[in-house]
Design a protein around this nucleic acid. Sequence first.
DNA 1: TTGATTGTTACCGG
DNA 2: TCCGGTAACAATCA
Length: 261
Amino acid sequence: MPEGHTIHRAAIDHHRIFARQKLIVSSPQGRFSEGASILNEQICSAVEAFGKHLLYKFNNEYTLHIHLGLFGRIRKQKLPLAEPKSSVRIRLIGKKHLVDIIGPTICEVLDQKGVMALIGRIGPDVLRPDANPDFAFEKISRSKAPIGRLIMDQSVMAGIGNIYRSEILWRQAIHPETPGKAICQQAFDRIWGDARALLAIGVERNAIVTVFDEQSAKRGYGEKYNIFGKTNCPNCKGEIRRFEISGRRTFVCETCQPIET
DNA sequence: TTGATTGTTACCGG
DNA sequence: TCCGGTAACAATCA
């Protein structure tokens, strides 16, 4: 679930239901009691996403920092209260809604300095209007690491996860094993633009959708991916190669995505 | 019970 | 210094 679009969607949604409200913040399992007590009964001023990091800002200058990792989930419900699942780490309650944060890898309270440090170490987020893509291109064009690794490196550019990685590179006909330094400005611009467009659609539809043929448009659903988890290329029908980049499965059509060096 | 999974970081060796 | 590999952590489902 958690690629960048999930977090941005949550930020927009939670800002809508929580901003300017005094929140009840609790730690049902008691595993985040100190943090919860700092934030409890404070007014939420903003909810923002930076890459896959979610920040709830409060008027007392403290910020709740959430990262869902691979397994974390966010569950929003309308009041009245329901019993939290046993894996709920922190629960936020506003006037009409509650949000449970389930199994995050990061759940902590940051001060202003901590927030600055966090934002400083995250690369430009493809979904943020204030992102500077030049920073990412600069890093990519100086690296000999494969582009498939670089675009998913959140300190290079933020937001892309394992599914979008294979999908974007296939759509842009770029081989994931192409070294960063072999990626020209135009190729990078295509990657950045496609990432931004796809993740924005992901935010809207609350799903990873990278296929836009007539059939799926008419029906409103259909195949969601072009290449991820597939055995044959939808374009040339050839066999798709499956391998790993930094321990994560990657899919490539050697015919449609020729490698450049 | 085992394995797989839309993620990240600390640590270590080359 | 930089790069790649490995372990650790998280929750759920088939």
